[in-house]
Design a protein around this nucleic acid. Sequence first.
DNA 1: CGAGGTTAGATTGTATGCAATAGTCTCAGA
DNA 2: TCTGAGACTATTGCATACAATCTAACCTCG
Lengths: 227, 227
Amino acid sequence: MSPLVVGARIRADIIAGNLEPGTKLRETALAEQYAVSRIPVREALRSLEAEGLVESRPYVGSVVAPSPIEDAEDLFEIRIVLESATARRAAKRAAAQADGGEPDPRWRAVRKEINGILDAGDTVIAESRFHDLAVLNMRFHFAIAELSGSLSLISLLRQISGKIEWLYSLNVSRRGTQAWPEHRAILAAVDAGQETTAAELMGAHVSRSRDAYFAMMAERAESGTDE
Amino acid sequence: MSPLVVGARIRADIIAGNLEPGTKLRETALAEQYAVSRIPVREALRSLEAEGLVESRPYVGSVVAPSPIEDAEDLFEIRIVLESATARRAAKRAAAQADGGEPDPRWRAVRKEINGILDAGDTVIAESRFHDLAVLNMRFHFAIAELSGSLSLISLLRQISGKIEWLYSLNVSRRGTQAWPEHRAILAAVDAGQETTAAELMGAHVSRSRDAYFAMMAERAESGTDE
DNA sequence: CGAGGTTAGATTGTATGCAATAGTCTCAGA
DNA sequence: TCTGAGACTATTGCATACAATCTAACCTCG
């Protein structure tokens, strides 16, 4: 087990629901579970605390934060604005590079990675592997954020997407299949340097994602088990 | 020197400009500077990394992140949506409590703290202590977020407000004096449980703050020294 | 003279052990 | 029986020590 990945494991356990909100996170227990010492565990907890996934109090300990279900609407609204911004900024940088601005070497690498993501998504859809599609979806959105060149926006996306992912964890959405092709349109606008178009497409894309989420929740609520 | 406060000290040094972007943050040096061991320093760096104030790479180290000046517009836009949400949610909870819902004991404490903040702001304005006003301003906005009862929104505000503060650090804005009375109007809407009014007032409030920021920047740009 | 490998130094990552604190349980007293 | 004070225990906070890794200088070889 790699030691720097402890944080990712705990985060995954929280998002997947293996660790329910309110669960006390004892450092020694986690250290033993992941076969490391308490030090990496503590650092992981600090990161998760900053992400809002756990709550910590000095000399008392850390507990899993309450689920963000109550905040779903607000989180989506913020995400719409945030991701519109990343798309707009990415388009702006694309245009700048086309005009012969400073040729960021990482740009081409990320841009190439996106092609791979999109192709992989097509394959995964053909094989109906929905969980993998969710991962690819996240990677696409983060890659666009990386193209924006703004560390601020990237770190905000990290924080908010963790919670959105948590929202979705209960039941995997099947919207991905229909929404996937929209990514290519967004990317085309980015490549063309069309800032407003890129922002609008991304905003609409995320907005539809939100609508699908709430439609799904409503359906779930009707179908009975509200526990 | 209290040891848990190391993170706050480093953050303050970054925001104040004592540590310029790109500066390498060596753990031993920081530990010596604050008279603690490397452990609390490392935990602080993890938090700052999650906040986007520091960039870290394994076995290489941490450097101060680039200033978010380029992202000012996007950050303000996100903040408008975010803080409108906190105000709306706070108003919603106020109405729920008035209707005899579960009486959160912390609510009254925070609500009382806000009164103190507002009064202190009046005093500070009378004495023209602008730096203290900026601190009180932050505390007001965080207190409203706390009334919203949403940990997700609070942690997002923490992250984004750190960057907004960084934006302002170069030259203290004087808008605070004019904007301060708006806080009472926002609070009144919250207390009355008027969700949409609270959200709109907060949105307009933050929006004017943004306008003031850009006006100030434009003025600075005209007045010559662009470095 | 340049390129590539190699070694030494510095820096980060982790483990162990001890100190400090909070929560709890017990027990005496009213 | 209830209340409060005090010690006890579990857990977190931190310092020291060692291992792993990166970077840069240097040396060798073409």
